[in-house]
Design a protein around this nucleic acid. Structure first.
Lengths: 205, 205
DNA sequence: TCGGATGTGTTGGTTACGGAACACTTTTTT
DNA sequence: AAAAAAGTGTTCCGTAACCAACACATCCGA
């Protein structure tokens, strides 16, 4: 058996399906979509769909998984956690540079992300994404830095706050047509995150 | 042998190839494109390309043919010639309504048309398109109306003038990002054509 | 409440496409 | 001018995707 993950037919088929999914979520919302809608739009046989996915929920989950896996790969490859980056203050890999990579990735997948985070999207995805960001930023275990900073606010609330805030910024950016570059967005987001919202708004010296 | 023209694989493959062609013409111009470029971009095997086309010139010609065939179908289905429409003054099918259909079609194929009419496109296509418009508008033979109107300007120059002018308007529209609707463009174009440029510009009562 | 229409999964036989390799020709580099 | 690299056009074999058809599940208007 040759590697079916590099077979151009498989790659193109999956791309078509995902594109169709994004378009249809935008048009009628996830709930209203049928498998037939997807295959007609994607111009593939319905049987082919079932060769890859069990049903539309399975498709949704797998698309989400891919997105998060890829984001995770980008983040981990460049630094185990943002907190760790804060510790070392390394010039080559900072929260900023990680954020750039994430935004570049989001930018390339903006169709899917917008559809899935939008009003007609899948609510459960937001939860999963927050979870993912939590782990990416702080690792699976609350680490030392997090504990030190948790005198006023318990660590998990801090993480939730930051993760939700980030998603809010991302949603705003996607809805606004992505006028800022990934670099600019990374700067904005890391400015808020590192210095705090009031500082970033210029209300605090 | 099943009908290979309705096989979804064939349809998707050809679409991918054409999309890739359009992108690459935009990026580097037709001359610089290799077959390998196209197949890589389209995510198909190079062998598959040769199953459908002899080489990149054959591809180009066949894309052009399809566009013109389709435009021709639209025009002829709705009226044998614009001149004939002018004669009858029919309310259901006028030069305007034909032009709307053409612009709707151009709008849907704007990627290809823009690439092919643009500075990096295939020069021979402009000639073919003018030729096509000539025949669409005036038929294969100079007709009575055309002769009547050719006291000051010989008919073939009039036709060339109008065809070239139309292409100019189309290019301008495509380059400008198609801000006007097909309906609006049809109104503009038929206003100029029927009443003359100076009248349309408001310089002539 | 029934019947036609639409969607769901699944199957078996058929075909278009992909991968890999081939001998050549053309371009680019040195 | 020779060597290396990239592109061309073609082939053989395996397989992903195709079509058609199926039994069954919903749904909706007569």
């Amino acid at each position: 058996m040759r590697d079916s993950n590099t077979d151009l037919r498989v790659i193109r088929t999956k791309e078509s399906i995902r594109e169709a999914l994004v378009e249809l979520i935008d048009e009628k919302g996830f709930e209203a979509i049928t498998v037939k809608d997807i295959t007609t739009r994607a111009k593939i046989n319905r049987g082919t769909f079932y060769a890859h996915y069990q049903d539309k929920f399975d498709l949704m989950t797998k698309c989400e998984d891919e997105i998060m896996l890829e984001m995770s790969r980008i983040a981990k490859q460049n630094f185990p956690s943002i907190i760790a980056a804060l510790e070392t203050n390394s010039p080559t890999s900072t929260p900023f540079s990680i954020a750039v990579l994430i935004f570049v990735y989001l930018n390339e997948n903006s169709g899917f992300m917008k559809a899935v985070l939008g009003p007609k999207g899948d609510l459960s995805f937001q939860t999963r994404l927050k979870d993912f960001m939590w782990k990416t930023m702080f690792g699976n275990e609350p680490n030392a830095i997090l504990k030190e900073n948790s005198l006023l606010v318990p660590g998990q609330y801090l993480a939730s706050y930051v993760a939700s805030a980030h998603i809010g910024v991302i949603q705003q950016w996607l809805d606004n047509g992505r006028k800022e570059s990934p670099q600019e967005m990374a700067r904005i987001l890391s400015t808020i995150t590192v210095n705090g919202p009031f500082f970033a708004a210029g209300l605090k010296k």
